[in-house]
Design a protein around this nucleic acid. Structure first.
Lengths: 204, 204
DNA sequence: ACCGTTCTGTACCGACAAGTACAGAATACT
DNA sequence: AGTATTCTGTACTTGTCGGTACAGAACGGT
C-alpha cells in the first residue's frame, strides 16, 4: 500500500562508507553524500535519521566487509605466527593500491572522535583490544607453554597491536614507506618462528 | 612611536598549542582561541594573519618543547638499545597523566590532515622518518656490524617507529592500556639487548 | 601636550554546515 | 480508477565557522 523504495539501502551505505573513509566524518557534508549516493537529503534523513546514524552503519559495514576478512585468519583457532606474519604481508600488498592513502576507517575515526565523543571511546578501545587478542591467539598457536613464553606472548601481541595501528596511520603519509614497514614487521615475526623452532632457545 | 603589545606572543602560542592539542585544528574555533589566550580576534589576526599560521606556530612549539626533548636521547650519537627502551618507558610514565588522553599533537594532525592537505603531507612523512632514523641510530649503537645485523636494525627500527605511532593513537582510547603497551615494547627491546650480549646468538 | 602609529574590542560578512517543512510524484492495495 | 501511504526534491531555518571593517583606546617620540 505504499510506494517502493527506488534505491538499495545497502548500496547507499557502501557509497557513504567510501566517502567517510576518504574524508572522515566531519569532512563529509550531506551534500557530498547526496552526490555520492544519488539520493537527496530527505531520502537520506528518512532512511537514517541523522548523519551520524548513517556513519555508524557505514562503519559497521566497514568492519564486516574489510576488517573481519583481514583479521579472521589471525583470530582462527588454528592460527599461528605464520598467520600473523601473513597479516602484515597482506597489508603491505594492500598498500600498493593508491586508494590505501585513506588508511583505515576505524583508525581514522579513533583519531577523530576518541576522547571527544564519549559514545565512541568505548568501541574504539574494544577495537584495539580485538587486535591484541587476535595476535595473542596467533602467538599462542606455535609456542610451548610456560611462564616465560606466556609473558613473551603478552608482550609481543601488544607490540603487534600497536604496530598495526601505526602502519594504518603511516600509510596516510606515505604508502610505499608504510608497505615497507609492514614487511619489516612480518620479517620480525618470521624471525620469532625460527627462534621457536630451535629447540629450547632462550630468546625469552 | 607606537603602542606596545600588551601580551607575550610566545605565551599566546603556548595557549593555542594546548587547545589544538586537545581539540584538533578544525575542532578549535577562533572563539575558543580568544577565550584561551585572552586576546580578541583582531589581535590574533593582526599577530598571525590566519588560524592556520597560528596552528603552524603551535605545532612548531610542540615539536621544540615536547618531541625534541623526548627524542633527543634516542637520536644522540652515544644512544643505544637501552635508550630506545627508556623512550618507551618514559612514554608509559607520561601516560599516567590523564592529560595524555589528547595524544600527540603531530600524530593527531597527521590523522586530520595527511593526504587531505597537500602542504602538510610532506612534513608528516618526514616526521615518521625522523622516528625511523632515531631508532636506527639507537639500534646501531649496541650492535655488531655485518649484513645480518644491518637488516635486523632496519627491520626493528621500522617496527619501533610504527609502534610509537600506534601507542600515540592507543592512548587516545585508553591511557592505561597504552602505558601497558609501551612497557611491553620496552621489554621486547630489552630482550634484544640480552640476545645481543649472548655471544654469537643467531636470533637473526 | 601633541600626533602618528599600533593595538584592541565589537559588530559584522559571506559561506557553509546539519537538519526540517512541505509540496508533489510514485506506487501498492482495494 | 481511486486513494492512502510512502518516497523524493526544493527551499528553507538555524547555527557556526573563518575572516574583515572600523572605531576608539593606548602608547612612543617629539
Amino acid at each position: 500500500m505504499a510506494r517502493t523504495r527506488a534505491y538499495d539501502q545497502g548500496t547507499v551505505v557502501v557509497a557513504a562508507k567510501e566517502l567517510f573513509w576518504q574524508r572522515g566524518l566531519e569532512g563529509t557534508a550531506i551534500g557530498d553524500l547526496e552526490a555520492a549516493t544519488g539520493l537527496s537529503r530527505s531520502s537520506l534523513y528518512l532512511a537514517f535519521g541523522a548523519k551520524r546514524a548513517l556513519f555508524d552503519a557505514a562503519l559497521a559495514d566497514y568492519l564486516d566487509t574489510f576488517i573481519d576478512p583481514l583479521l579472521a585468519p589471525v583470530e582462527a583457532p588454528q592460527s599461528g605466527l605464520a598467520e600473523a606474519a601473513r597479516f602484515f604481508r597482506r597489508l603491505a600488498a594492500l598498500f600498493a593500491d593508491p586508494r590505501s592513502r585513506r588508511g583505515c576507517l576505524m583508525i581514522n575515526t579513533i583519531a577523530e572522535l576518541a576522547g571527544r565523543d564519549p559514545t565512541f571511546t568505548g568501541p574504539a578501545a574494544q577495537f584495539v583490544n580485538r587486535y591484541r587478542a587476535a595476535f595473542a591467539n596467533a602467538l599462542r598457536g606455535d609456542a610451548a607453554q610456560g611462564d616465560r613464553t606466556r609473558r613473551e606472548i603478552a608482550r609481543r601481541s601488544e607490540l603487534l597491536a600497536v604496530s598495526t595501528m601505526g602502519v594504518w596511520l603511516a600509510v596516510r603519509t606515505d604508502p610505499t614507506a608504510a608497505a615497507h614497514s609492514c614487511r619489516a614487521v612480518a620479517n620480525e615475526i618470521t624471525s620469532w618462528v625460527r627462534a621457536d623452532q630451535r629447540p629450547r632457545s632462550r630468546n625469552q
